[in-house]
């Protein structure tokens, strides 16, 4: 394999700086002791992190986001795993349509989904309901789980299942002892990816949350449009830290490159 020249490496360095700069700046500003967002700062302080933990609205929003992401990722996994197995294993009329339908939220703008669900929830009289917010998120994140589980189910050696059958395994043992363990990395990776996507989702959520069910990204968005102070940077730094931790876990569980690039 040929080497990259100096020109290529400088280009690469610029791209990396470009990608990381806004995140690094956020983390630096988060530690400012001052009241403004100016850089470079005069010193080092944790006062804005302390400020975050005194804001009940942010803590509630964070709490909401965690429960929302956990429940919706779990529900999405529960419906995506059987759907993925049916789509990869069974031939039935409408299979391709269902597959396309379940993946379609990826190409439908979240904003359009947001206003559509806003209308539905208003008509049903469930606006601001946390349970319906969870279901709305399940729709949006199911494609992520589905894609990874589909890949795992397609990549799996089907003859292992045949071997188990020939050794006397019934339908239940077959699923619990062979199929599920073999696609588990895909299932777990899909769950985590769904969790992250639900946790980060802002565009749809802004339409279907009420002040009581506001999620962290929505709270941050609203806060950022109203006022800008270093507390926003502190919250952002915490979100970045949390995401990095989740990504390390994801990497351990499934391999980050497989999740991001989708290679087998």
């Amino acid at each position: 394999m040929s080497r990259n020249g100096p020109l290529a490496l400088s280009f690469h360095a610029l791209v990396v700086i470009f990608m990381l700069a806004p995140l690094v700046v956020v983390c630096l500003v988060a530690f400012t002791p001052e009241n403004t967002l100016s850089l470079p700062t005069s010193g080092f302080s944790l006062r804005w992190f302390e400020a975050v933990f005194e804001r009940a609205d942010f803590l509630d929003a964070f709490h909401n986001s965690l429960i929302l992401a956990f429940s919706s990722a779990t529900l999405a996994t529960l419906i995506a795993v059987p759907a993925a197995l049916a789509i990869t294993r069974l031939h039935f009329p409408g299979r391709d349509f269902l597959n396309a339908l379940f993946l379609s939220p990826i190409i439908i703008p979240h904003l359009v989904l947001g206003v559509a669900m806003l209308r539905l929830f208003a008509l049903m009289g469930v606006s601001g309901s946390f349970s319906w917010l969870i279901l709305a998120h399940v729709v949006v994140i199911t494609p992520y789980v589905l894609r990874l589980v589909l890949a795992a189910a397609v990549g799996m050696d089907r003859s292992a299942e045949q071997a188990a059958e020939s050794l006397g395994a019934g339908r239940v043992s077959l699923f619990c002892r062979i199929t599920l363990p073999m696609i588990l990395p895909g299932v777990a990776g899909g769950w985590l990816l769904a969790f992250i996507n639900s946790f980060d989702e802002v565009t749809l959520s802004i339409f279907v949350t009420s002040p009581a069910t506001q999620t962290l990204p929505v709270r941050m968005y609203v806060y950022a449009t109203e006022s800008i102070d270093p507390m926003m940077a502190a919250v952002s730094a915490l979100v970045i830290a949390l995401t990095v931790v989740t990504m390390v876990v994801l990497d351990r569980v499934y391999g980050l490159d497989r999740v991001l690039v989708g290679k087998q």
Partner: peptide, 25 residues
């Protein structure tokens, strides 16, 4: 893989955070 992940991971960080980062810059 190190740089691939470095370039791709911002994908998983909330878009609000990234927008805020650019507003600082």
């Amino acid at each position: 893989s190190v740089f691939l992940i470095l370039i791709l991971t911002p994908l998983l960080i909330s878009v609000v955070v990234r927008a805020f980062g650019w507003s600082l810059l």
